[in-house]
């Protein structure tokens, strides 16, 4: 197992390098540059700016410089927001997104697993249909609808929670966390139910029941182990997405997280910022996929031994 994990970690380097390379050239192909604006800068200013940021060097040179910078931990300056370097921006924003992501993940898992397990125990009963219908509602209502709806009810009508903000008022994290977690909760619920049904119909569960093990023990110890398999496969990359922030939720609630940076950078063609945020996201995807794979193996003795 240790060797497997080490090998996977070693794989990070070429994969990240591939992502950096593809992204680097991809963003340069996209029309429009970082300095295009409604008021078009004069050709002289454009040249000056490009010279300032070494964008006038040949592309391969820029690429090599960038990769060399990466190995020194230098992600370059932000073209659009020059007050801080890309590294500083990421260090400023990532913790916020990660915190929100953790809450979202918690909401998703608590609600999702509970609902999914409950539904799988009595298939096609009310206990199944009610949570699953709710989960479907959660899936049908995208976060750009759910967020404003929650604000409308809890902030504007009831006045219980703040409209937006982060660390600016007590309880201002509740609505973003709920909005972010809701959709994932619905996914988790449905995937759990599917996985659980799959497992609970299998022989070893019958054996366990026949052995006279308590139902709770059967479900949690034996059922959930196999039942959460698809959830974990789904959550690997989803967790990376959650932790690097959701553009929609961060925009609705004005959370100063990385998710907005990620999308805005793409729209601004802030080359270095795109590269930086992509790199963070990619690293997290790799880490979480690894974690998911390990968790899958750990939960499933058959894969573990293979």
């Amino acid at each position: 197992m240790t060797r497997y994990i080490l090998r996977r970690i070693l794989e990070f380097v070429p994969v990240l390098l591939a992502i950096v390379t593809i992204t680097f050239f991809l963003v340069r192909i996209a029309p429009g540059g970082p300095f295009d604006a409604e008021r078009r800068p004069s050709p002289q200013v454009l040249r000056q700016l490009e010279a300032h940021y070494h964008l006038d060097a040949p592309l391969y040179r820029q690429y090599l410089d960038y990769v060399a910078g990466l190995f020194r931990g230098d992600l370059g300056p932000s073209f659009k927001k020059p007050s801080r370097s890309v590294r500083e921006w990421i260090l400023l924003r990532l913790p916020v997104s990660a915190e929100l992501g953790c809450y979202g993940l918690a909401v998703a898992l608590i609600i999702g697993l509970a609902a999914g397990v409950m539904a799988s125990l009595r298939p096609n009963s009310a206990l199944d249909h009610v949570p699953m219908a709710l989960a479907m509602v959660g899936i049908c209502i995208p976060s750009f609808v759910l967020g404003p709806l929650l604000v409308l009810v809890f902030s504007l009508w009831l006045g219980w929670l703040p409209v937006s903000g982060w660390n600016s008022a007590p309880l201002d994290k509740v609505l973003p966390a709920l909005t972010l977690g809701a959709m994932y909760a619905a996914y988790v619920a449905r995937l759990t139910r599917g996985g659980m049904l799959e497992v609970l119909s299998q022989d070893f569960i019958r054996t366990a029941r026949a052995k006279g093990l308590g139902e709770a023990r059967v479900v949690v110890k034996h059922g959930l182990r196999g039942g959460v398999q698809p959830v974990i496969a789904f959550l690997g990359p989803a967790a990376a997405g959650l932790l690097t922030g959701s553009f929609v939720v961060e925009t609705i609630f004005q959370v100063p997280g990385l998710g907005r940076e990620f999308i805005e950078a793409a729209f601004n063609r802030d080359y270095t910022m795109i590269m930086g945020t992509t790199l963070v996201f990619a690293s997290l995807v790799m880490v979480f996929n690894l974690v998911a794979d390990i968790a899958q193996a750990w939960l499933d003795p058959r894969i573990r031994n293979a």
Binding site: A106, N167, S168, D172, K173, V174
Partner: peptide, 15 residues
């Protein structure tokens, strides 16, 4: 996870 949730509800405020 429960602990995390409690944490989330508890903190906030601040500056």
């Amino acid at each position: 996870l429960l602990a995390l949730t409690v944490l989330m509800l508890g903190c906030g405020g601040g500056g």
